[in-house]
Write a protein that binds this DNA or RNA. Sequence first.
DNA 1: CTTTCCCTACCTTCTGGTAGGATGGCTGTC
DNA 2: GACAGCCATCCTACCAGAAGGTAGGGAAAG
Lengths: 199, 199
Amino acid sequence: MSNLSTAADDILACARSLIVAGGYNGFSYADIADVVGLRKASIHHHFPSKVDLVRTLVARYREEAEAGMANLELQVSDPLEQLRFYAGYWEACIADASAPFCVCALLASQLPVLPEEVGLEVRAHFRSLSAWLTSVLERGARHGRLQLMSTPRAEAEAFMATVHGAMLSARAYGDPKIFGFVTGPLLERLAPRFPPDLK
Amino acid sequence: MSNLSTAADDILACARSLIVAGGYNGFSYADIADVVGLRKASIHHHFPSKVDLVRTLVARYREEAEAGMANLELQVSDPLEQLRFYAGYWEACIADASAPFCVCALLASQLPVLPEEVGLEVRAHFRSLSAWLTSVLERGARHGRLQLMSTPRAEAEAFMATVHGAMLSARAYGDPKIFGFVTGPLLERLAPRFPPDLK
DNA sequence: CTTTCCCTACCTTCTGGTAGGATGGCTGTC
DNA sequence: GACAGCCATCCTACCAGAAGGTAGGGAAAG
């Protein structure tokens, strides 16, 4: 076991951070080669074309995201706490600059110029994230743990949009704190004014 | 008067729509040349470098935005109506696909790989938009025309983030209606439950 | 003795950008 | 009005480097 096929993983990790920084056209095979310490041709050995690389990168990202949502369902039962955890995850990623943007959100902004296969993966992530948020909000509303002002679906789309917009603002202002500044009140608003049970 | 220096305007308009589609690295001088019917070298005559082109493009975009805000202050007095107009403007742009994304929002997502001069303009737009939204919300709250749940500044940042995120979702889903689906409830929530005067 | 991984070397196309020439409209001056 | 000069616009032709990608060989592990 141990470090099986580290090279491919390194390449994917490097490409991910490069995409997060500048999108699909913001990096090249040469950029990756410089960072991981391989030659361009060796990158092509692992991922024949750029489309291959980015498609598998996004596919893996989606798997991780799905796993994260599934895990959150197991570990945390309270819907509000699930949302808090989700927002907190991104707040931490942005604060320590380890992954200051969602790969799919960034790629989605360039959808019109994305290779079709990549675009399909990106869209799928949006649907999956939206579906999960909808289910969390629906359950929270049903159990009186969340206070919605419209349908779960509408609140979910608004929640997702606000989180993505908060990432953008944090980047635009060059200030990680703006993310929490935006998502904090968003979560507060969803918390019930008079908690049905005292925690 | 009449069509003075139409060429430069054509180039800027074309570059704008190309940036809206794919960002700074998503287009080339050759792409512009194909569309406006000039040769690459002629584009360089009007805008010596790509940085020149995009910097003036964003500067002009900012001027238009500032003018739009100023005009809105003159034409519409009610803060809620101002916000509605702002959101409605983008809803229309997205629906007819004429400008399905804010140039600065798209460029902001690629800030780390943007030339510094362009980045500065982009950041300036965010500050200016945020400042205007803050003033609208502050005034609305003061006059009882808007119902805020936190400070005007916080609501302004949340509003801006949600609008940007809604643009992203509309693009990701390939469905212009999602923009209104997200921004509609956002505006409703700001509208006073019991209007202080009956319109 | 095949497969995996990585290499050097090379290719084609695209990239932003430059040099320098042709056209043609606007000046000022006689 | 004629004429020279200027300058804005657009062109062809070119360049160096970066883009994504290919061909084929060497080492080493199974």
